[in-house]
């Protein structure tokens, strides 16, 4: 009896929070959960006369094209390593920016700089690819024309030299996303209790020591959650970054091919939804497994920081 009475009260308490969550939940339901129903398309040979449900089952045939060539290794390696680099360097840069901004004395300046740093993430990849092209163009690009040529260094044909692109892509991605990523860390730092810093100051800790002993340890949970979420998408890549920015140059495939660009290039002419569904399913499954594994590891080391 007692517990029955307690229920409505609990609901009443959580109701405002639930209502707040409704738009987000609806978004996930419509965009992520309903479409999951279509997973079976990955195992079908779609035939329009027979319809989606009537088409023949083909088992894992749709998946074979992903592993058809030695490209499978290259694109998987590229996707994984690039995303690892983005996660590691992205986190470091974002935290660095957040701390610097927070330590800025003038709050007006810190807001101003932060807005400026967020700006690149608003630029579309297509526009960005043209900005990059203005730098790297073989004849009239800024780097060849205004830096290498006056210095007498032999010019570089950027769009046919794969070896430079791992660095270029990481730099471009950091320039675009680090500012935006720093917002979450900035908010976390702002949420740290001021009295801890004051106590540290009284004990004689300098700025650097405060950052090392207070800010960074307290940021750890945020870092872990954000990393776990990025790891879930480690098999996906930003299509714009890997397709538009290198201008789809064939010579660069060995360092710019990722799973997404491979699927796009391979299926652009075939237009086969079964095979594209298979590729999507493969990426999601591997991402899901990775999240479980990493979470398990985190749990083992420090169960408080694990996601679930």
């Amino acid at each position: 009896m007692k517990s029955n009475k307690a229920k409505p009260g609990a609901l009443k308490k959580t109701m405002p929070l639930l209502i707040l969550a409704v738009p987000g939940l609806l978004y996930f339901l419509i965009n992520s959960y309903f479409p999951m129903f279509g997973v079976f398309i990955a195992f079908k040979d779609i035939n329009y006369a027979k319809g989606i449900f009537g088409s023949d089952w083909v088992g894992f045939n749709n998946f074979t094209f992903l592993f058809q060539t030695s490209d499978a290794w290259i694109m998987t390696r590229n996707t994984l390593l690039y995303n690892l680099a983005f996660i590691v360097f992205g986190t470091i840069c974002s935290i660095f920016i957040a701390i610097i901004m927070y330590e800025l004395v003038s709050k007006i300046y810190s807001k101003l700089f932060l807005s400026g740093l967020v700006l690149p993430s608003l630029i579309s990849m297509v526009v960005l690819s043209l900005l990059v092209f203005a730098f790297l163009n073989a004849d009239s690009g800024f780097i060849n024309h205004s830096i290498l040529r006056p210095l007498g260094i032999p010019e570089i044909n950027w769009y046919s030299e794969p070896k430079y692109w791992p660095y270029l892509l990481v730099i471009i991605q950091l320039w675009k996303t680090a500012g935006y990523g720093s917002i979450v860390y900035f908010a976390s730092i702002a949420g740290i209790d001021k009295s801890i810093y004051e106590a540290a100051k009284i004990d004689g800790a300098g700025k650097l020591k405060q950052i090392r002993m207070i800010t960074l340890p307290l940021l750890k949970p945020t870092v872990i959650i954000l990393c776990l979420m990025s790891i879930g998408k480690i098999f996906n890549s930003d299509f714009g970054l890997f397709y538009q920015v290198p201008l789809n140059a064939g010579a660069l495939y060995s360092t710019t091919q990722t799973i997404d660009t491979y699927v796009y290039r391979a299926l652009m002419q075939l237009n086969d939804i079964g095979m594209s569904a298979a590729a999507g399913l493969y990426q999601s499954l591997v991402g899901f497994v990775l999240v479980l594994v990493v979470n398990a590891i985190v749990k083992k080391i420090n169960s408080d920081n694990a996601l679930f």
Partner: peptide, 8 residues
């Protein structure tokens, strides 16, 4: 599968 790989 082969056609898609060859296209690439």
């Amino acid at each position: 599968a082969q056609m898609s790989a060859v296209n690439n």
